[in-house]
Amino acid sequence: MKAFIASFVKGQILLFAPQLALILLILYDRVSFYYGAPVVISLAVLWGWFDYSGKAQRRGASVLKKLERLVDDFGWLNFQEGGGAGSEMVVALLDKASFGSSTLTTPQLAMATTEKIKEVYFTLELWYFSMRQKVRLLLRKAASMIEYDLLEVVNEFIEFYGEFVEKVAEETLRLVAKGDLTSLESEREGFSTFKTRLAELRGRANAFLQSLRDDGLPVSETKVRALEVDPWFKTGTEISETKQSPQ
């Protein structure tokens, strides 16, 4: 509270001091009321405006920092091989899957789908880097940022997240599920870690979006798309089904 009052007074002292001085001078009849009134009123209006815009900027910067962390974590998990995610990148499964003995698809069809998914992945990768740059740029010019910029970049993140999960992650996993999963047994643990990290990221993103909605920012969604496909889980169900069928 003390720090808040101190920052408030320090920031606007040049707007506050003349008001006080002029009011005292008017009261002691040293300065004309007609001269003092416009000065006092204008300075009071400016004081209110600077205080409001300063608070709005601080709020905007704090929201952007949270968004930047989410965007960075998403990129670390899905795009930056050197960043630590490495083999956990979901598209890496496409190069490791084999479809030779598959009855659900042909190798040619699988190859064509793989190419399509990789194309979408590279497009989304470009979109990701452009979005990350936009967030960083907004963070640098937070002083002149308006609420619309903030809303636009948050909505872009929601749309991007949904597109990536739907068109890259789920498509990849659907295709992988059609192939020979026994050759991917070593990747199962990596995928499990990826899934856990993505779920944790989704949880943080949802909490962030809900807090923005609670603060009155009309974000398009309060929940980002969940990853609903798990090829190994399906296999597990199938295995249990085959175990039950002879009885």
Binding site: Y35, P38, L43
Partner: peptide, 15 residues
């Protein structure tokens, strides 16, 4: 009064 008010606005503008 108008002159005095005018100087008030000029002061604000300059500040």
């Amino acid at each position: 009064e108008l002159v005095q008010g005018g100087w008030g606005f000029i002061t604000v503008g300059l500040m």
